[in-house]
Design a protein around this nucleic acid. Structure first.
Length: 203
DNA sequence: GAGTTTGAAACT
DNA sequence: CAGTTTCAAACTC
């Protein structure tokens, strides 16, 4: 936990730059906010996604998580070594209707991954045969996100959504994941570590 | 660079 | 939870 808090104390900034005008960078529309990062050197207006507005920022994060405990879970599997998406399905899937998933409006196409079983798109051309045979992508829960999301899920969801807790333990679930997820889990550890650290400051 | 299109996120 | 609105990025001209 010590190491994890040290990680959390530094909100690493990626290469993204947002241009938000109306969201104050406190909604998931903002790429930086959605990634759990402060806006640094962005082109945004009235930005509140910065250390000076931390109280407001944390309230917004908490409100979003109340609505959807998975909201800040990375939707695209990312290899932290290369920062490139891995060949696994988008967590939520896309819902493209007009672009056939061959333009960057499509989150899957934009991430360089084919659409998969999680997608609800129409007339999709962003597919591969191999890919459609893959099982559903269920992002791994690490100890951090379990700590964060469990109370929210309990409050929000029905008993059937909780049954995985009764069955296989968290560590067993992780053990069942294929080797390719390991680097992604490390990525999540870092991301959720920061997030939970911030949430702890709220309570 | 301005205006349009698009689909995720947010809201009702 | 389905329909609508808001939003910022992608795209077109």
């Amino acid at each position: 936990m010590e190491n994890f808090n040290n990680q959390a104390s530094v909100l690493l900034k990626g290469t993204r730059v947002c241009n938000c005008k109306y969201s104050k960078c406190l909604k998931l529309y903002c790429e930086c906010f959605a990634a759990g990062e402060y806006c640094i050197d962005c082109n945004c207006n009235n930005c509140c996604n910065k250390p000076e507005e931390e109280d407001l920022r944390l309230k917004k994060i908490k409100a979003i998580l109340e609505r959807d405990p998975q909201a800040f879970r990375p939707k695209i599997p990312v290899d932290p070594e290369t920062f490139k998406s891995k060949a696994a399905p988008h967590f939520k899937g896309c819902n493209c209707k007009r672009t056939k998933c061959v333009k960057k409006y499509c989150e899957c196409y934009n991430a360089g991954i084919p659409c998969g079983i999680n997608c609800k798109c129409s007339h999709c051309k962003n597919t591969t045969d191999n890919y459609s045979k893959q099982p559903p992508y269920i992002p791994p829960l690490n100890e951090y996100v379990k700590f964060l999301a469990e109370p929210l899920i309990k409050k929000k969801d029905s008993e059937e959504d909780m049954k995985s807790d009764e069955g296989s333990t968290f560590s067993e679930e992780i053990a069942m994941k294929s080797q390719e997820w390991i680097s992604f889990e490390k990525f999540e550890d870092s991301f959720y570590g920061r997030l939970i650290y911030l949430l702890n400051k709220l309570s």
